[in-house]
Design a protein around this nucleic acid. Structure first.
Lengths: 188, 188
DNA sequence: TCTTTAATTTGATAATTGTCAAATTTATTG
DNA sequence: CAATAAATTTGACAATTATCAAATTAAAGA
């Protein structure tokens, strides 16, 4: 079940067998139904999860409106970055948009792996670096002034999201409202 | 000269003396005058720098307009994240907004330190994590729909930027144009 | 200090996007 | 399959922000 994740880690830096064994031992597989809550705002994020199947959405509340900050799917690691690293409650919610299977590792066990296996720090660093520049690309898109340009970013880079995710979530992710998104899609 | 950087690293994870020695040996101190170019778009970013004194601006060109993506000052690490990690040419320019002194470490030497000293991976990982959630906070701000709200973010969190940086740079950083920023500041 | 350049402000107007209401289409459930 | 709910579209209008031009103020160099 966890094989693709292990393979991915090994592709970054070969893991000693004991580390692989520990990973398999310490990681729990958990299934979530569509609309299940994976993390609630106000709680400390204590886990890193890898998505084995499915798709999740990160959002926070601005007044009464849900602002979507991230969509993540098969292969991605999920956690509430701010809360997980600072050990403070965050304002991010994570919910399953589809039936989703996660491999879950607790913060303390992650720290144990970092301490015990130097090689795991390399993997942790590289994955964090990848997240950093993927986020930079997102920011790049958000700074585009025209709603149309921001929409084209999704069309170009993540067209499958348009099949899998209702437009009302994509609209706040792109920093526009639902009607504006609908009109952009409608014209031409 | 490099003491504050060394202290900061040590506060994350105590470094063996040989690592400190290597760091001091491999790092170059370089001074830049105001408006000097630190990195040009189209080149691969081969260095990580720590700002010992001064302030720099990251920007890219959208048509003919300069879009500012980052301000960084004393204590911060600078590099073009995308280019540095992917080893491909990026579109980011970095220039000094004030006379600036940098401690500079080459990519290859950084990799040497990562390979030679496991402890350095911990430091690299933690710093990358910090950058990641600082960027998340910025993204959070960029998603705010009202220009006024985005401006208040600067007022609240980085008021010194308003003293040190011309408004024309702050305006594109906040995703609005100069006149809009001026009007927001003017009213009340 | 005077001159020149850069930074900031102000005004008039146009373009873009948001808001609210309602209609239509699509999906889901008993 | 009908009934209900959810998703999407459309319309009218208002609010926000951009654009272009010009004036004013502040800063920097001779």
């Amino acid at each position: 079940m966890l094989t693709p994740v292990i393979d991915y880690f090994n592709s970054i830096s070969a893991m000693p067998q004991e580390l692989v064994d520990d990973l398999l031992k310490l990681t729990n597989i958990k299934e979530f139904k569509k609309d299940d809550i994976i993390l609630k705002a106000g709680k400390v994020s204590n886990h890193t999860c890898w998505i084995l199947k499915g798709l999740v959405r990160h959002y926070y509340l601005k007044d009464t409106e849900e602002i979507t900050t991230k969509f993540l799917w098969e292969g991605a690691a999920i956690t509430s970055v701010f809360s997980y690293y600072t050990r403070k409650p965050g304002n991010e919610n994570i919910v399953a948009l589809e039936d989703t299977t996660l491999a879950i590792l607790h913060y303390d066990q992650m720290q144990y792996l970092y301490k015990t296996y130097p090689a795991f720090n390399v993997i942790g660093r590289v994955i964090t670096e990848q997240y950093l520049y993927m986020l930079e690309i997102e920011v790049y898109n958000l700074r585009k002034s025209k709603a149309e340009d921001r929409y084209q970013f999704i069309v170009k880079h993540f067209p499958h999201l348009l099949q899998r995710v209702p437009l009302k979530y994509i609209s706040t992710y792109l920093g526009m409202n639902l009607e504006t998104l609908s009109r952009i899609r409608g014209k031409k």
